[in-house]
Design a protein around this nucleic acid. Structure first.
Lengths: 208, 208, 208, 208
DNA sequence: CATGAATGAGAATTCATTCAT
DNA sequence: CATGAATGAATTCTCATTCAT
């Protein structure tokens, strides 16, 4: 029964630089969804984590799936932007891959996106799914384009860029399969990124 | 209104050769969990799919997490057995990998096991988790041992077998990231298996 | 088919002077628990008796045991207040006892509190039990203090006030053992109160 | 899932002096009901405590209420027999009361019978209730007769024997209201019995 | 005499969602 | 802009009871 001290009623004074309620909700929700998965996060959880009431969450997001979609789309956009930055430099391609890998591994966010898609697919409307898929593709596209470019430049041999992209992204999730012991045995994100990129590089280079 | 015809109360007449109810439940549950994930499958769903009542499901499995654990452990055991058979032949190692890959890709079962672990981790008891992790490790161990053996035989260069194992298993899940269009564009399981194994082989061979 | 007309979803229009839903639930629950005992009252029962949905009951009380605890604590507080009033007068002590007894016997509430404690002890958390025990002790303390005071004033001989208190409270539940016939044979609450107090008075006076 | 080792199928060899299954069930049930109350004891609990299956319990007792009724009636008969023995001696009446009290207090069984009646009243059929009430009355009758007799012999003054009986039985349950501390502070059953009987004796003797 | 398998009706609890203020 | 009050449908789990063997 003991509810936590809620902010007092009415419109709160706008603090300078304070994130808007909507943004707070979006970010909090993103974290929660990533950590626990769509079905395990309740609107109550989100509300409580934001120190607002459920009704407030509903004020900004009409349904739970809307919130989820918005959260995931935004997340992918953030990732995409970071990726773009990395891939736009004029380092050698292998270097780019390394930085890309490092970026992904550093974020907690390297959790398999497919997982969420699958978990959510049952609940999302067609439009919501399309939105997410669109964002997801944009994410992959970035890398695929870079791969094509490297191919054209002769940095890597001819290959199916689509599959090569997927494989690389997939490899970045390898950590999820490690048990705690093994995780600890890896000295650093740098090392893991290096191992993955080396492996990948040999793979696409065709072990010639 | 349109409930399916349930069998009447009390002990049912024993049909010869009929699968035991417990097994039916376990198999049905496995499929459902794999298709929809732990939180999205209700005990009602399981019961209905088996044409028994919820109470019957609870007669055999004390809790939902027990059922889930049993289903996953059994699944992993099945996979392990198949893997063992494949890896025990005296084909060249690359051939073994190919058959292993094909086997995995053919089963619906190639869905990332980690997904389930993550989905379920929130609900499972420590003991249940341990059970599953034990089964999972046994599953990987098989392949790791084969890798070590191949290394000793000089079929592949020195490498971190643990990581190499994880990477291979990881690659087998790449299909999950494909959108429907791309999936269709792949002519056959054989082709995909070949692509993956070739890629992997180059990868571990170190592109020397 | 014949569900009562429920109020529609969302916040209800505020009627002036209407008791708060929470209070209604608390009072209704108290009555139901007293009449039927903890295990026999379902949250559905409570909800239906209050003309609200189960979810509403849960909105105010997180669990059934919370509701029970709240109901009992409130009940004991009410009793305590009444007792305090009675015991604070400056009548002779025997007169006080008589009024105290009458008050108890009049309330439906004279049902053995221990009964509930025992019924509930299996379900309540440690904290909830402590809460109830605390309220219960406060209840007895009132009478014990009065007894001590009477002893000091020489109105009654020296005695173990603790035990004397328990005995008196216990005697007030004697009616619960009567069968219907016998209950009817007792002309009035006044008579019964008188019999009990007389008996008690002789008892503590030591039959000297 | 791990069921305990059950006895093997078929009729068990009759051990000499072994209690019949029916008796075991009855006694076990009595204990469980006394300890936890009617609604809190499930047929599963009874079965498990007896190391038989639920179906076996149902073989001997058609319904849960039947089992409860049988258990309580048997219990009261046992109590009655003990009481009869005690009250049939030719000690002075006060002495008889003391032994009676001691007997009751020693048994765990001094738990308010009314409690059970109330708990069960909601579930029992009319016939079952009558059976129990009949047994209960027989129990009180014993004491009431002894009181009448003592009155005739001039051992105690004229009084309403019915009420006097109830009060005595009532006093024997006073321990239920004690908190653990207080219970421990009472040196022995003997002491408590003595206190109660002394108090009672003064009470009925009218403090003249 | 005793059991294992099964059921149907409910129980407690959760949760997405709605709406007057 | 934000909230508190309320709902309906689902979910996990329990339990008295039944019946073929």
């Amino acid at each position: 029964m003991e509810k936590k001290q809620h902010r007092s009623i009415g419109r709160p004074r706008k603090e300078q630089g304070a994130a808007s309620t909507k943004d707070i909700i979006l970010h909090t929700a993103t974290t929660l969804f990533l950590e626990n998965g769509f079905p395990s996060v309740s609107m109550d959880d989100v509300a409580e984590s934001c120190n607002v009431t459920k009704a407030t969450v509903y004020y900004y997001f009409k349904t739970k799936t809307d919130l989820f979609t918005a959260a995931m789309v935004q997340l992918m956009n953030v990732i995409k932007e970071k990726s773009t930055t990395i891939l736009a430099t004029d380092e050698p391609f292998k270097m780019k891959l390394f930085h890309f890998a490092k970026g992904h591994l550093q974020a907690t966010i390297n959790i398999d996106i497919n997982v969420f898609m699958r978990e959510a697919k049952l609940a999302l409307s067609k439009e919501q799914l399309e939105q997410m898929e669109w964002a997801e593709k944009a994410l992959y596209k970035e890398l695929e384009t870079a791969l094509s470019h490297a191919m054209e430049q002769g940095e890597i041999p001819e290959t199916n860029t689509r599959l090569a992209t997927l494989i690389f992204v997939n490899l970045l999730t390898v950590r999820n399969s490690m048990d705690e012991d093994f995780k600890r045995s890896i000295s650093s994100v740098d090392d893991l990124a290096k191992e993955i990129v080396d492996f990948y590089w040999s793979g696409i280079s065709g072990g010639a």
